[in-house]
Design a protein around this nucleic acid. Structure first.
Lengths: 233, 233
DNA sequence: ATTTATTTGTGTTAATTTTACACTAACTTA
DNA sequence: TAAGTTAGTGTAAAATTAACACAAATAAAT
């Protein structure tokens, strides 16, 4: 079976830059999920998870599907990043890639090994191996976008478990933005938005004072957002 | 001649949301350029300028080409907006659209009439006619992006002539952001960035005090930007 | 049971930034 | 030369941000 068109058409792929974060680690870097390519081109090289868009699925659906197929992960935050269309980005011919960003917490979404006969592995953002295709540029674009976005939209919570402590939240922001915050000022700022719900629970188990657990009030955020409220950090 | 592939491929188009602004008008709205479709589907309806991407051109190049073909405009600011991939967005079949935003000044870039046998016309943003395809959503996305972008990147200057007065700049920002600024505070803020060059010229001709003309120092901006400088309004 | 080591949780003051506000200067037309 | 209109300018109050230190709570070790 084959498909014939009057004019030539580029092939269409989606690629996902999946950011992972583990709040349990002391010095927790941002991580990116890569898969080792088993086929040419770039056989043996690491690449972003992705694949071709099917005719009966939207771009978002294709990204969600690839995410699930290659990592087993579901119900993760995902958003379109940018569409890459350089002429020579794929040696097999003209292939466009609509890139997506996904944000996952490594405790909540643990990687299912080898779901797609391809080895998937997390890499620290600043220890990435050489990447196939133009994926280095895609990752760079994604990191810039994440850094920009995290400051004026509360997407950081997607990288944490549902319940988290203030210092986990602060560590996350410090990791993503590569800067430090004053503990008291950070708390004050976040509290001023009234978007955290005290769950009553405590994070115990470490040999120090237990910390209160909070939950992000996404319903309230959505309501406020409509009336022009702006989160900012 | 025809082209055959093993798997089906969507067609690929670019569409441009061209924002126009005229600093000479008293009550100057933001404008959007639309063309009247001469062919089915949506014959007679207004639509964003656009067309299919050719095999040997990048997405950016396709957007630039369409812009020139349909409006005669060259050397305008252009950037990729978003890729729209709903299954039913084109009744002819699966067509993806990579949308672009362009910013032009209506004095600098005057519309060449009927360059492409299609009537092109400027419409006030808040008086748009019904649009073909999913172009209403594309325009909405573009407006949101422009409003967001204009606040933290100095793209507003693209909508003005090379030399402009402070009140022209202020009017532009007030129009795009749909709010007012205090004249003195606005001036102070902009001046604090040191990104405007006094050209020595004056805007004369109106029955009131002449205003100094300034030019945006894009070289200096690019240099500062690299070292973490942030424009913000 | 007590000590030790470690992280949590909290308030005030100074510095900076943002906002509010009104009059004179300069230009063109009548 | 008078009238009408926009350009250009400074200061004080309010709000926000930044800087800073110690007692309380917990688990582990003694």
């Amino acid at each position: 079976m084959s498909y014939t068109y009057k004019y030539p058409r580029p092939a269409l792929a989606v690629d996902c830059v999946i950011f992972g974060y583990d709040h349990r680690l002391e010095e927790s870097d941002l991580q990116i999920l890569l898969i080792e390519r088993k086929l040419v081109p770039f056989k043996g090289k690491w690449a972003l998870p992705g694949g071709f868009v099917q005719m009966n699925e939207t771009l978002d659906a294709a990204a969600v599907r690839e995410l699930k197929e290659e990592t087993g992960m579901e119900k993760v935050y995902i958003e379109q990043l940018y569409t890459f269309g350089a002429l020579d980005r794929d040696p097999r011919g003209r292939v466009l890639s609509v890139a997506y960003i996904a944000l996952v917490n490594l405790e909540k979404h643990n990687l299912k090994a080898g779901t797609d006969a391809e080895a998937a592995e997390w890499f620290s953002l600043n220890k990435l191996p050489a990447l196939a295709f133009d994926h280095k540029i895609i990752v760079k674009t994604a990191v810039e976008r994440l850094r920009g976005k995290v400051r004026y939209q509360p997407v950081g919570f997607e990288l944490l478990p549902d319940e988290f402590t203030f210092s986990e939240l602060q560590n996350l922001y410090e990791t993503v933005l590569e800067r430090t915050f004053d503990k008291r000022n950070f708390r004050k700022k976040i509290e001023s938005y009234g978007l955290l719900i005290d769950t009553g629970g405590m994070r115990r188990g470490k040999p120090n004072r237990a910390a209160k657990l909070y939950r992000f009030d996404s319903k309230r955020y959505k309501a406020l957002e409509k009336h022009g409220f702006m989160f900012e950090l």
